[in-house]
Design a protein around this nucleic acid. Structure first.
Lengths: 119, 119
DNA sequence: CATTTATATCGTCATATAGCGATAAAGCAA
DNA sequence: TTGCTTTATCGCTATATGACGATATAAATG
């Protein structure tokens, strides 16, 4: 990171808090990670199942799972020879649902605007 | 971007939808942008006020504001010689509040764990 | 028109990270 | 032990992006 100039921010949120919050949102900012979370929403899956379902490489999936685990969004435990992954923070479902709903509203609004242009 | 291999994702969310959702979360994944949004939560501010409050350079603030505007999270309108910025999507407040609450819970949990170890 | 103010944009650098292949590590079977 | 399976990690390249300085645009003012 480049050196930060001193911030005189009149905020109730500290720099540390902002970094933490940003890192959580950053974990959700990649389509592949959202895809993995989406695969986990119906229930727990092994890494191998996620590799197959995501259509990406095993190394890539493993790395993305590590990001999600560090962000506290998923948990893992050994299950026989495999590693079982599961959503560990219910906030994941809420956040994604909120975002999906919001996008759907916007899309429908734009569709209406195209259907009835200029009101 | 490197060429994408064909995805055979068994998902109810399309690649396009995942990209859209990810881009929204990505807009929230930088501390500086969260700081700007935080400055806007009490009410609208001009770009100049945000530059002063954020402690960053004007060019940098302008670029981050553009990201937030493209993500539909803030709106702008000319107000005399200045440009007034305001939060355009109430989802911003909800998302940030949720994330803050969640982090606070986790921090308090860890603090308790340190206070009463292995308790 | 010239100037000042307020924003936006451009060029550049440094860093972060997605994706890939190869390999390592851990567990189980024979 | 060897071999197989599953997952994690390493090395690499290409790309994306944050931060900065300089410049360009736009509006108000003299």
């Amino acid at each position: 990171m480049p050196p930060k100039k001193a911030t005189s921010a009149p905020l109730h949120l500290s720099d540390t808090a902002l970094e933490l919050i940003a890192s959580r949102f950053r974990a959700l900012s990649e389509p592949m990670r959202l895809r993995l979370l989406s695969c986990l929403m119906p229930g727990a899956r092994t890494v191998g199942q996620l590799v197959e379902a995501s259509g990406s490489g095993q190394a890539n999936v493993s790395k993305h799972l590590a990001v999600l685990r560090e962000a506290g969004m998923i948990g893992t435990r050994k299950e026989g020879p495999s590693t079982l992954c599961f959503i560990a923070d219910p906030i994941v479902n809420e956040l994604c649902e909120m975002m999906c709903c919001r996008l759907r509203e916007e899309m429908e609004g734009k569709a209406r605007a195209l259907t009835f242009p200029a009101g």
